[in-house]
Every structure is written in structure tokens, then in C-alpha cells.
């Protein structure tokens, strides 16, 4: 069995007493496109932010490329790409300056940087906007620019939070083709989405997250089996069935026994 690119085990995270993750476990392998689907507040974005190093978690383990990211929380990032949901972008930079800046941050060699920036602008149909500031871009163009920035260093693991939000059908097609191409070259892709039809067609594996834990994982066939669903049922029907079944009371977070523990 190969080592997964990302492996999350029994992950717990609370915000001000509210449990966002309650023992989430997940794995993604080389060349897989893993869709994270779940209702609002299920914990998808929290899990993603933990993997990319923007959030600290309470309990559990996160391994990326086989390394515990708690032990080394910097070096693994060199090979990951990340596109947040509604990304904050430096409005004052031109699109080429922004990609150049991200390229420098992502350790793209200086001599390769101008060529890589031009390539990204061309691939994402932004060449005409190269000298315009981010502030002047439409929502769809901003999303394409954020996607270009997430992939400028040719990452081995790409993590996307609602990447298709606000993009027109042609733009969506462009990004989806790009994702499939990257996966074929061995890149692992973790994508959070509410678009179940997209997840059904694009993802090689889907993880249904509900109330901070993974209630089912697998390809469509496997999910049908786990949900005891018929062979013609769509991912949407399976998703609703699984999340309704999982609507039981929330478990308590395991705590260390201390001086003031009641048990």
C-alpha cells in the first residue's frame, strides 16, 4: 500500500467551545481527486485550513507526504498549492506582479519566474489583464488568478476550497480540465465543494463530512453500498441519505483526565 499524500487521523478542533471537527479521518493518494462534501458548518474548511497550516488543531494527527506537520510545519508547504474560498488578494498589485510575488514566495527560481508568470497568464486567459491591478478584475477572473497562483510552482498536493464559486461555465471547464490534467501527472487534489454534480463527475473519491467527521468515503459505487442506495441514485441522493442517517447526537471530545475531572 503506497503512503498517502495526506493522512488525517482522528482530528478534533473546537472554536470557543463549539466542536468543528470531531474525530475526522481522511486520506488522499497520488493522482486522486478527493471531493470533500458536506453541509454548511460540517468542518470542511476547518480541515483544509489545518492541512495548509492556517489553523492549529486540538487533537489528532496530520501527515503530509508522510511527515507529521506538527514536527515540521514549514518544509512540506513547498509542495502544496492552496486556493481559499473567497481569497483575499493584494488588490494593489497587477496580475503579473501578484503571480511573480507568489512565485517568489513559493521558491520558483528567479530566472524561471517571468516565463512561468507568462505561462500562467496565458493558460488562464489573463494575458490581456497582465498590467491591470487585481482591484479591476471581475469575480471570475479573480478566481482564475487565485487558481493560477495556487499552481504556479507545480505542486504535488493541491487543496481547493470551493474553487468554482462565481466562475462562468467556460471558466469552470478550464479549471476542471486543468485539475484532471494535474491529477494524471500524479498530483493529489483535495477539493471542497457544494456542487455535487461536479463532485460526482470530477472526483475519483468523495468524502462525506458531517458534524466534523467523515461519515463515508469512497467512489460513487462504494458510497452507494455504504448508504444502501440503489444503483441509479445520484450523489445528491446518497449525500442526503448519509447525512440524515448521521444526524445522531454529537459525541463528546475525549479529554485527558486531570485534577478536576469528574471521572
Amino acid at each position: 500500500m503506497p503512503e498517502p499524500t495526506v493522512r488525517i487521523e482522528n482530528l478534533w478542533k473546537a472554536y470557543d467551545g463549539t466542536q468543528a471537527l470531531q474525530g475526522l479521518s481522511l486520506a488522499a493518494f497520488e493522482g486522486e481527486i478527493v471531493g470533500l462534501i458536506g453541509p454548511n458548518g460540517a468542518g470542511k474548511t476547518t480541515a483544509i485550513k489545518i492541512i495548509v497550516g492556517l489553523l492549529q488543531w486540538d487533537r489528532g494527527e496530520v501527515h503530509v507526504f508522510g511527515h507529521n506537520i506538527l514536527a515540521d510545519s514549514i518544509s512540506y508547504k513547498e509542495h502544496i498549492g492552496y486556493m481559499p474560498e473567497a481569497p483575499a488578494l493584494p488588490e494593489y498589485l497587477t496580475t503579473s506582479e501578484f503571480l511573480g510575488y507568489v512565485g517568489r514566495v513559493r521558491n520558483v527560481p528567479k530566472e524561471q519566474l517571468p516565463g512561468r508568470v507568462s505561462e500562467m497568464l496565458r493558460d488562464f486567459e489573463l494575458t490581456g489583464k497582465a498590467k491591470e491591478t487585481v482591484a479591476t478584475l471581475s469575480k471570475g477572473m479573480r478566481a482564475k488568478l487565485a487558481f493560477a497562483a495556487a499552481t504556479i510552482h507545480k505542486p504535488q498536493l493541491l487543496i481547493l476550497d470551493e474553487p468554482l464559486l462565481g466562475i462562468d461555465p467556460a471558466g469552470q471547464r478550464l479549471l476542471k480540465d486543468r485539475l484532471v490534467g494535474m491529477a494524471k501527472q500524479g498530483c493529489s487534489i483535495l477539493v471542497s465543494t457544494h456542487q455535487l454534480d461536479t463532485a460526482e463527475r470530477l472526483c475519483t473519491k468523495v468524502a462525506v463530512i458531517h458534524r466534523g467527521k467523515n461519515v463515508a468515503t469512497g467512489d460513487l459505487e462504494s458510497l452507494r453500498g455504504q448508504a444502501h442506495a440503489g444503483e441509479h441514485q445520484t450523489l445528491e441522493e446518497i449525500f442526503l441519505k448519509l447525512t440524515e442517517e448521521a444526524g445522531q447526537p454529537e459525541p463528546d471530545m475525549p479529554r485527558r483526565k486531570g485534577l478536576f475531572s469528574r471521572k
Binding site: E91, Y92, L93, T94, E97, G100, Y101, G103, R104, K110, E111, L113, P114, K131, E132, T133, A135, T136
Partner: peptide, 25 residues
């Protein structure tokens, strides 16, 4: 405030973009 900032950047863009950020040097 962010929308206002975007407007301001857009308004003076032709002038302020004359000074560019060279990222490869």
C-alpha cells in the same frame, strides 16, 4: 472600505502602475 479601496486603486491605476514591482530581482 475594501470596495472604496478598489475604487481608489482603479481610479489612480493609470498613474500609480507606472512604478512596477519587479519580482524577479
Amino acid at each position: 472600505k475594501m470596495a472604496q479601496q478598489r475604487r481608489m486603486i482603479g481610479l489612480f491605476g493609470g498613474l500609480t502602475d507606472k512604478i512596477a514591482l519587479k519580482t524577479d530581482v
